[in-house]
Amino acid sequence: MNTTALAMDTPTVREDQLKLGLWMFLATVTMLFAAFTSAYVVRRSGSDWRHVALPSILWINSAVLGTSSGAVEFAYARGARGRWRTSAVAMSIAFALGVVFLAGQMVAWRQMVAAGVYLPTTPHSAFFFMMTGAHAVHIVAALVVLAWGTVVTVRAAGQRRGWAARMSLCRTFWHYLGVVWVFLFALVSLY
């Protein structure tokens, strides 16, 4: 049995720990957004609820975030086949798209302010700014993780050990925030 080859691909205790830590962190983050959501649902039943129009750039931002997730997946697939260069490039694109997403969110906020819709204007706008703000804060953290993943990928060309497990952490966190975004966007648009 070629233990060396196995050792390179099986996650070490360290990667297991990081995965555990990440999943628990995601459970905590889920509870945070669950709390915001339940507050939203409660407030929605109030008599003064007024839905404000949301800027259409949010659709573009969603597409950007989706594409970014796609890029991370692509990077993972390529890396698994040893195509490190492509993988690293894909990761960089994912990172860049993440930054574009944040910029797009800021544009969305400014458009709303320009239309006279501020944080306290209606409960709906209050939740919108608050929840997208909370999401954006987590995206910033996830960008740091993506940057780390990019570096790991660049280095993996010479040192493959545990790459797959580390990449998985990036993917999980990034896709998770994408799912949270889809949920939040649907909530503030449709309900």
């Binding site: 944080l119 608050m130 909370a134």
Partner: peptide, 19 residues
């Protein structure tokens, strides 16, 4: 986390005019 969420909302009520 629900206390975090509540604290954020209370801060917004206190300083940013939300309800």
């Amino acid at each position: 986390p629900p206390l975090t969420a509540a604290a954020v909302m209370l801060l917004l009520d206190r300083h940013f005019g939300t309800s």
